[in-house]
Nucleic acid binder design. Structure first.
Lengths: 347, 347
DNA sequence: TTGTATGCGTTATCAC
DNA sequence: GTGATAACGCATACAA
């Protein structure tokens, strides 16, 4: 009974004895069309089971109401919060998300960017892979003035907006806090320095040391992927150090590496924070579960996501200024928990 | 200098003095076209900065190489693993993902399904919202024979494949394990029974009780959203019970609720597993962090994702059988950890 | 191996 | 308010 042919506005037009143009307008609630015909059109559409064809529309109207999202990995707590925020904000405004991950591989990022362009996304949201070195793969976007918004793993570029937090300041604050708790030999478990986020966390750490006249000890600076295994490895590294060379406080660039380092040390009988204090970054759910609870930096992935999308869409709609805002710095907050409440050792 | 007009196959054709049809074929490496012209076309494309327009192509060829993904929430550890797996499998086969979340709201799910259809996704991957009651919103897909694959939160339907694990069996095993550890008053912290996953976990729990001649105690059956707060609430509920009425073992439908219930009880001085043993579900990262580590059921979200996508795509490509496989049950495994290693109380 | 002609479903433009 | 028509960029049936 049901033809396999697609039902089009022409079918509705024929059904009602009006033109396809009118149907097209009516379906979009164009006020030019009389209220009564609009109603007739809507009814006929429902009756015939009409479902608009988005890309026929896109082809003609030149916009897709689709945003491309390019992330290093989908499956981290932070990133999935960001995506949740993005999806929420986008769908509220009638936009869809097409999502791809680079898996920290710059080549894959290049391919994905090209796919996004071919799908003619109205805008691109991107957090760079660990080893992306330039933005050549985004040139098509820049040339065609398709707005690009960076978030988290950003890269300075004139024509874009970046959504970030003050990584430097937060790291400075965390480190100063550890120092105030009595730490004198501080360690840093950091991420890839090619990415600003991790570089700035390192720099904030270093500056805090300097301001408090403490040394930056190369031996106590480890760069890793910040994974669970990296945390376990770091614990082993610490345990292998002569006791006198061990750190008495560790600032980690994320919570995962912090927690699994703590677990490794605890298993070896070290006390936290008495022997070694800890602080992480992200306020991941595990930070509230590990014992002692992990001091960390809280900032909302969801807000990062909604902010990025809102900014992009308002730019698309021409609501924003002529030029895009260049940088949006979101709030972050130091959350002090037991892992850094070091007992005073000088009594 | 750069026109704002899009560069099309016609531009390439003109540039080379050949027909657009040849260009179209050449770009897709059609072997009909001589190797030399193919090379010329590729070169010209690069030179002119050509970028194919996916939906002009889709309009004509009637497939989009895009899969729709509809999930209750993006930001859970399990779901983001699933999505990561899906994206990996899809991109490997040249497909893209367009992702939306229902936020556990059936109405939003209806809207999203319609959007997906309007975007003419080649297939749909869906995990149902907590309160979805029927599949009417998927009728357009069924009618047009657009393949739909359910995963996790599934719903039986003739024309679809479901990717699941044996929730009943896993729950039965977990519960039996708790009983073997000496638990006699078992509690269940479950999810919405409208969803098979949670219903089956309950049923496996109940059957294990029955088989071991233990009672199912209504008072010790709580249904919740399985959130952190739900865990905290459950702890309070348990603490408010007269000591003699408290459970000596708890089986939770996910790890989040388990862990936060444990934390609440520990804060009140209860010992785990001595006073109350615990088991969860999902093998979430927190299960390896909480003390004692949480006994749980492990199954890979990533495998769920890749399986769902592979199955869908092989169906699209006509590689699979004439009819879709109806149900695929993936492996799950009981992971015994300290939270259920109850001391024997009968010595 | 290549070219011609047409249509996919919609919207923009211009006319009435 | 509504209609006729062209155009969006590409792929395909058919012809050569």
């Amino acid at each position: 009974m049901s033809e396999d042919r697609e039902i089009t506005i022409y079918d509705i037009a024929k059904h009602l004895g009006i033109s396809a143009a009118t149907v097209s307008r009516g379906l979009k609630n164009n006020t030019m069309i009389s209220k009564s015909t609009r109603k007739k059109i809507a009814d006929a559409a429902k009756e015939l089971g009409y479902q608009s064809n988005t890309f026929a529309s896109s082809l003609r109207s030149k916009n897709t109401h689709t945003l491309g999202v390019l992330v290093p990995r989908l499956n981290s707590h932070f990133m999935s919060s960001v995506l949740a925020g993005m999806e929420k904000a986008a769908s509220k405004q009638g936009y869809n998300l097409i999502i791809a991950q680079s898996l920290e591989d710059a080549d894959r990022e290049v391919v994905n960017a090209s796919t996004m362009f071919n799908k003619r996304v109205d805008g691109l949201l991107i957090s760079l892979s660990a080893n992306t070195e330039n933005l050549n793969h985004l040139d098509s976007f820049f040339k065609r003035k398709i707005p690009v918004v960076f978030f988290d793993r950003v890269h300075p570029h004139a024509d874009t907006t970046s959504i970030i937090i003050d990584n430097y300041g937060a790291a400075y604050k965390v480190t100063s806090h550890l120092i105030q708790q009595g730490c004198k030999r501080l360690m840093h478990l950091g991420g890839n320095l090619l990415r600003d986020v991790y570089r700035q966390r390192l720099e904030g750490f270093q500056q805090a040391l300097k301001d408090h006249h403490l040394p930056f000890i190369e031996e106590l600076h480890i760069i890793s992927t910040l994974s669970e295994d990296a945390g376990t490895d770091a614990a082993r590294y610490i345990l292998d150090l002569p006791v006198s060379k061990r750190p008495d406080g560790v600032f980690c660039a994320n919570d995962t590496v912090a927690v699994h380092c703590m677990i490794g040390l605890k298993a070896a009988g070290l006390r936290i924070p008495e022997d070694i204090a800890f602080a992480g970054f992200n306020n991941d759910p595990i930070s509230k579960v590990v014992e002692p609870n992990l001091t960390t930096v809280d900032y909302s992935g969801e807000v990062v996501g909604t902010t990025a999308v809102s900014n992009l869409i308002s730019h698309l709609k021409g609501i924003s200024d002529l030029y895009m805002t260049n940088q949006i710095t979101l709030r972050s907050e130091l959350i002090v928990r037991a892992s850094s409440a070091k007992m005073r050792t000088d009594i």
